[in-house]
Every structure is written in C-alpha cells, then in structure tokens.
Design a protein around this nucleic acid. Structure first.
Length: 162
DNA sequence: CCCTGATTCGC
DNA sequence: GCGAATCAGG
C-alpha cells in the first residue's frame, strides 16, 4: 500500500465517518490491520474500542423499565435512569457515546404516583445502592438538588480534551 | 466463532 | 513506515 496523499486523505475521511477498520479496509482494498496500523501511526483519534462502545450502546439501547424499589440489582450492568438532557449521575466510568440516541423524556423509575427522586446513589449492584427518594421537584424525576445537577446545559459536554 | 480496535514486532 | 500476527474484549 502506497500511502499517497489521496490514500491518506481517504483513510482520514472514512475514519472520521466512523467506519470500522475492517470496513475501511474493504473500501480501500486493504486489510483492516493496514488501516488500524496506519491510523495509529497517523495519530488519528482512536475511536472507542468496541469493548467500550458496545457496552455503552447496549446499556443505552436496552434501558429496561425498573421499579423504584430499593433492591440492589443483580446484574453488573445495572440499569441507569435515562436522563432527559445531559446527565451527570454519580455513576463511575460512564461514557456517553451516542447522545443522539438518548430519548428526550423517559421516566423509568418513579411510577406509582410516588413523586420521589430517583437519583441513583451508590454503586449499582452493591447492597449500598439506593435511590435518593427525596421529594421530587416540579414534576421532574429528581429532587431539586439532584435536578440541578441532572439537567445540565448541553454545551457543557465537551468531547475534546487535548 | 463472529465481530471490534490496539499493540507488537519482523520486515 | 508498513502491516500481519497477535492480543483483548463483546
């Protein structure tokens, strides 16, 4: 593979379009190894590895409804409440990868007329895990305190971090 | 076993 | 610098 300026540009373009390395390889008639190798060498932004990306996508795509009971979830992939705007829940290692996929308004937890805050507290899967349960605020699924941090301005989410 | 991207290392 | 082999993970 002679990495001409055109070839590199095409690689950059396809890479930026989010194609998989294998797909880029197919399009350019080269192996995915060549693609990822070159991309690595070009210092192209390493897209989140599928092992991370698919996890985030899965948890976001399958937010199964959960009753707001203070029972610790069994599975490690405990469901997290889907936040309307740009959430910053106290859940460690959370990476938002598909902002456009997030539903506008989903209220998985409250139910049963109980206007209690469903802000998650503690690590899901642990016995300590629970919800805030303070009185919710203005019809929102969170109390005033947690609503203030749950609803953050969209521009606050910055992807770039040099 | 399919897929993904990342890294290694002989060339 | 290149990329197949290999690794790591879903």
């Amino acid at each position: 593979m002679d990495w001409s300026a055109e070839a590199i540009e095409q690689l950059r373009a396809l890479w930026a379009e989010g194609h998989s390395t294998a797909e880029i390889g197919r399009r350019m008639g080269i192996s995915k190894n060549a693609v990822v190798g070159k991309a690595h060498r070009l210092h192209l932004p390493a897209r989140p590895s599928p092992i991370q990306r698919e996890q985030a996508a899965a948890s976001a795509a399958a937010p199964r409804p959960v009753v707001a009971v203070a029972v610790a979830p069994v599975a490690a992939s405990a469901p997290r409440p889907v936040m309307p705007a740009a959430p910053r829940p106290p859940v460690p290692a959370m990476r938002a990868a598909a902002p456009s996929a997030a539903p506008a308004v989903v209220r998985p937890f409250p139910r049963s007329g109980a206007r209690t805050c469903c802000w998650p507290i503690g690590e899901p899967g642990t016995p300590e895990f629970r919800f805030c349960t303070s009185e919710s605020f203005a019809g929102k699924p969170y109390c005033l305190e947690h609503a203030s941090i749950a609803y953050v301005k969209a521009r606050d989410r910055r992807e770039d971090a040099a």
